[in-house]
Every structure is written in structure tokens, then in C-alpha cells.
Design a protein around this nucleic acid. Structure first.
Length: 87
RNA sequence: UGAGUCGGUCAGGCGGUCGCGUCGUCGCUGCUCGCAGCGGCGCCGAGGAACGUCCGGGCUCCAUCGGGCAAGGUGGUGGCUAACGGCCACCCGGAGUGAUCCGCGGGACAGUGCCACAGAAAACAGACCGCCCCGUAUGCCGGUUCGCCGGCAGCCGAGGUAAGGGUGAAACGGUGGUGUAAGAGACCACCAGCGGCGGGGGUGACCUCGUCGGCUUGGUAAACCCCACCUGGAGCAAGCUCGCACAGCAGGCGUUCGAGGGCGGCCCGCCCGAGUCUGCGGGUAGAGCGCUGGAGUCGGUCAGCAAUGGCCGGCCGAGAUGGAUGACCGUCGUCGCGGCGGCCGGAGACGGCCGACGCGGAACAGAACCCGGCGUAUCGACCGACUCAUCCA
């Protein structure tokens, strides 16, 4: 799930992204690994995020078992929806 | 070729005999019938630090409403990481010709304390030897109208000064001049340093340029302290499951007038609450799980200066519980020493290389829940990068 908000109305500052990976996803090791994978996935899609925007990416419990490609598709879907809702 | 700096790898190989532990398997014996004991066979069986237990995490249980005061830790900046007191990069200061190394690197105009020895004086100014001026006992010299006058030295008294001297780890800016009775940032020039303002570069520590100003401010915070940030407690004997055993007695304080407990430092505040505490006496001290494949490691690739991270693929046979992993022999390799033989260099003394032989050495040290670091110990062997000097092309 991806939440988005325009916190810098001028749209100059680079976009900021935060991650929420709760205890429901797994233990400390699983949660940290999930965060790292999500971070690298988002880094590859930074061009599609408008400047001045803040994102919060929340990991569902299924994210722990998902493969890298599955995570990528799901993030893509949520990201386009969240960005479209901004406009 | 010599001298040096930094980083990394390995931790003797092979074979044999005896011994130990987990697991598997076969046989015998026992019974509570799926375990125990004994014996045979087979596989596997410590480390780079397994160590110290100095930090940080995972994991487990307990607690989790809030406020205040303590306590402990960290300390340039930016990043990495699960986290750190770790690592990487950079800044500043110091050492080195250099590669590089070292730093316990916030604040000394918030306050308090301390600064040994030496020195006059150690933090706020003061003045021991000095230097100078004035008054003046006295002495000497010169002049004299014999009243004294001038000069020099100087006891004592009052004052000016901090340039010079010596001490120290450190002495109230440095050098040169002006100035003065002697001197002094009193004034001037340059330099160092401090502060203000402005321009430029950098995410930042900070760097750099210009300009102005009083001319100048000691050290110590691993002394208390101040500032910023961080920290719930206990630990695998954690903890979970199964099984087994027992017997109470006496006393204190208590049941909305509340004992006791929790918020593991204290106080407030909040919550639970009918039992609880002490002494004597009695009982059980068995088994299993946790227990080893994990923030693992190697290669490739992508991002990054790097630490590190993403993706893809490969690899990974200790698990004891009074605690196993040991001892000996053979052989090969390696290092040191000894004499012997050969070759080379040299006038020689001697040095270097090779060969076989003999003797000797091979460290530090050992799992106990698991990781990331740090620190310490270590006979040696090897590899890579870089620096300086000299020579040759």
C-alpha cells in the first residue's frame, strides 16, 4: 500500500519516501530484509515520482514471502494509483 | 638492489596404531516393549582468535499510563548498519622527505576548584634584581663676592616603569621604529591571533577572499560542572512442555481505617489486591524441546570514492552437559644451527648459491544459545599495493 502527499507545494525539493514494516510481517530479520528490498525497488522508480512529494510505503504480511519480481509488480500498481490520485 | 609503509591469505600435508563424543547400523542382554546397558562396523568431530567478556543486536520471559529528580554512556562532520563505544569517507590539529601514522577532537566570558618543583610572581594583578625622577644625611672635585653655587657618587624616604635578567610544560602578543626622565600598543608599520560585517565554494565539519575594530584574552573538563543525543529489566541455569513427590505447625501485619505486590534507582501519581511475610519441619532435584542454516559464505553483476546494499547462481556433515575432538610412529614439505662437497665473487679476511647428512624447532590457544565489532595472545610462511634512496636503459 502506498500513501502520497504533496508537502512541498512549489515542487522543488526531491521526493521523500518512508517505509512502514510492522511486526505482522515477521521477526526483525525478515522485516529488515523486506525494508531493504523495498528501498532498492523504489530507488529504481524515482523518476516516476513528482518532486516535492512525500510517500509512505506500507508492507502487507504477504510481502515477507513474495519474490523480488512479485514485490516489484505490486509496488508498481500501488505507486501509479497513488500518483494518479495526487492530480 | 637497499630501507620502509599499508592491506590481505594460510595456521603444515599424506598414511598407520590406540583412544574419546554425537549420529546411523548390526548383534547380545534386560525389562515397564521402545527404551537402557555392553560389544562390532561406518560417517563426522574447534578457531583466527573458539580467548577476554569490553560494547552492540537477535532470541526468550517479565513490564509497558504519565510527570519530576537522579544514574550510566556517547562526543569534529557526512554516510553505512539490525545496532554499536564499530566501519568507511572527509575536515581540523600534530609527526614524518614520503607512502602513511597518531588524536581520551563539544564548551574554560555559566559558576566552583586545582596548577607540584623551580621562580619575584601561576591568573589578578602585582614587582625580586634592575632602570628613571624628586627630596636628602654624607663624601669627592671645580668655582667663589666665603653666604654658597655647579657636577659626580650615594644612605634613607616618597614616587614612576615593566623594556632587560633568571625559573618553568606554560610568564599577560612578536619584530622594527616613533616617543620618553626611564618606559609602556601610548602611537605607527608588518606578522601572528581574536571578534564583527560582507562575497565565493561545500549536504556539512570547514575552507577561501575582502574589509573594519579594542591592540591581545594562560592551562586543566579521564576535576566537579554545563550543553546535545542515547539507554525499561533480566538473561539459554533465559524460557516452554511432560513426568514425579509432599504435611504441616507457630508467630507478625491485614481484608474498602487496606497488608502485600507491579511500574526492578527514588518520589509523586496510577493500577492489581485477600492474602502475605518470617521461623521450624517435610518433599522433589528426572526427561525432552530451545540447539544450531544464519542480519552465513563464495563468485558474477548493478549502485556507490568506500564502508555497504539490491539481484542471479553456487556452497555449507561439532553440538558435549562434569563437559568428546587426544597421544604416538613413519614419510614429505618448511625454518634455524653445525661441519662436509661443488660452483661463483674477492689480493685476502670472508660472503653468496646449490647438494646430500646430522641435531633441533613448529606458536597462541580450545566450542557450550547465535551473530556484528573491539581488545589482547601468536612459531612462522606467502601474496599484493604504495613510498624514499641509489644504479642501469
Amino acid at each position: 500500500m502506498v500513501h502520497a502527499a504533496m508537502t512541498d507545494s512549489v515542487g522543488v525539493r526531491a521526493p521523500r519516501v518512508g517505509f512502514v514494516v510492522s511486526k505482522a510481517v515477521g521477526g526483525a530479520v525478515v522485516r529488515n530484509r523486506t525494508t531493504r528490498r523495498l528501498r532498492s525497488l523504489v530507488a529504481a522508480r524515482l523518476d516516476g515520482i513528482p518532486a516535492g512529494c512525500d510517500l509512505v510505503v506500507r508492507a502487507a504480511p504477504a510481502a515477507a514471502a513474495a519474490s523480488f519480481d512479485e514485490l516489484g509488480h505490486e509496488l508498481e500498481r500501488c505507486l501509479t494509483r497513488a500518483v494518479a490520485r495526487l492530480r
